[in-house]
């Protein structure tokens, strides 16, 4: 898939100044999220809730209730992981989330015209592909952050281990 012109325009626009602008545009008070969170704000929750099912396709359980529960645990794990990062890393991630939540960026990279919670899986897939192929290192870093946090939360959780045959740590006493 080649880079679309619009993606390229967005990639050129992305940079430290864009991050700062995104944080400013969003303002200091993002709405409170549904569940008590240590680190994720509402934008972050919406973005991870949209990308996690796509990143984890093939790993998530088929059953709807089991799948929803697994995704909820993954979001909890992502929140915990972010809370354990240094203040600098948390601030950078927060700026990145603010950037991805901006409608022009969302549209350029994903053609997602509705807010993130309304994004279809195919739109999210396109967004992830555009990020990881982007000429802008910042967008590739965004993909890595979404990838690493989601897979860390999923495979750090003992509930995922049976499916991959990992027996868990041995007993030492």
């Amino acid at each position: 898939m080649s880079l679309s012109r619009r993606t390229f325009v967005a990639a050129g626009f992305v940079g430290a100044a864009a991050l700062a602008a995104a944080a400013w545009l969003r303002g200091p008070h993002a709405p409170a999220s549904r569940t008590p969170r240590r680190a994720l704000d509402a934008d972050g929750e919406a973005i991870f809730a949209a990308v996690a099912p796509v990143l984890l396709a093939g790993a998530l359980p088929e059953d709807k209730a089991a799948r929803d529960a697994a995704l909820a645990q993954t979001l909890d794990g992502i929140d915990t992981a972010i809370a354990g990062l240094s203040p600098t890393a948390q601030a950078e991630l927060s700026q990145l989330i603010a950037l991805l939540a901006l409608p022009p960026v969302r549209f350029a990279f994903a053609r997602v015209s509705d807010a993130w919670p309304g994004a279809a899986p195919a739109e999210v897939r396109r967004f992830l592909d555009n990020c990881r192929k982007s000429r802008a290192t910042l967008m590739r870093a965004a993909y890595d952050a979404l990838h690493d946090l989601t897979f860390a939360a999923w495979y750090g959780n003992a509930n995922s281990w049976a499916a991959i045959g990992y027996p868990g740590p041995p007993q030492v006493t």
Partner: peptide, 9 residues
């Protein structure tokens, strides 16, 4: 990510 990653895992 997705199914390729899931197959490896």
């Amino acid at each position: 990510d997705g199914v390729v990653h899931a197959h490896w895992m």
